[in-house]
């Protein structure tokens, strides 16, 4: 465990807590894409299949349980909660996210580190996580209004993967045989997808104006 990895996990944790806090306190999911949240729930489900079989550390297990629990409760809130679901704007959340899953699954079957069910599922979760934010970014472009909690959520989500890239660089230079091309390429693509959002987020922060994405 290095500082970049810890910072990444804490930023990731902060992002899901910001989202849960927003939905739980103001009982609204305006501007939040349910599809992205469903994809994240699938990412954790397929990535943590070895939750009970492959014990890494207490920290690892607890974090996995938190991410699984928070992602499923966010999906539940938006789909089932009698108040929150009324603020879900399904006409704006139109990204065909299940179409995204197939290329990830096919790619995971052909490009993986080991052709076993668990490994293919894990690789699928890596590819899926890289593009899971797309429905949310498309929805933001459409609705144009980004309340600051949603903006913070996306910013933290992007920052977590950026910290992971620093973690991979650090581990590459400090641990021999640490090479995970699949994770690295997917992680860089994922972080780049946040690229333009980061740009507009910093612009709005610097000029102290409300965050606006171009049409």
């Amino acid at each position: 465990m290095n500082i970049f990895r810890l910072a990444g996990d804490m930023t990731h944790l902060a992002s899901v807590l910001v989202l849960l806090l927003k939905i739980h306190t103001i009982k609204s999911c305006a501007g939040i894409s349910l599809k992205t949240q469903e994809l994240f729930a699938i990412v954790f489900l397929t990535r943590y299949l070895d939750l009970f079989t492959n014990f890494i550390s207490i920290y690892n297990t607890i974090m996995k349980l938190i991410f699984l629990g928070s992602s499923f409760s966010i999906v539940w809130y938006i789909r089932r909660h009698r108040v929150v679901r009324r603020s879900y704007d399904k006409d704006q959340d139109t990204f065909r996210h299940f179409f995204l899953m197939w290329p990830c699954l096919i790619l995971a079957i052909f490009i993986n580190e080991k052709f076993t069910l668990k490994e293919v599922m894990w690789t699928f979760s890596i590819y899926l996580e890289a593009i899971a934010i797309l429905p949310q970014l498309v929805m933001l472009q459409r609705t144009r209004n980004i309340d600051n909690l949603t903006g913070q959520y996306i910013f933290l989500l992007g920052a977590y993967r950026a910290f992971y890239i620093l973690n991979w660089i650090y581990r590459y230079f400090t641990e021999e045989h640490y090479v995970h091309w699949i994770t690295w390429v997917a992680g860089v693509i994922q972080t780049l997808l946040y690229g333009d959002f980061f740009y507009y987020y910093f612009q709005s922060w610097k000029n102290n104006v409300k965050l606006e994405l171009p049409a």
Binding site: R5, R47, D50, F55, I56, N60, M63, F67, W122, N167
Partner: peptide, 10 residues
């Protein structure tokens, strides 16, 4: 063993 550390990240 290598296996158990293969996916030690979240």
């Amino acid at each position: 063993p290598k296996g158990s550390r293969s996916h030690d990240e979240l």
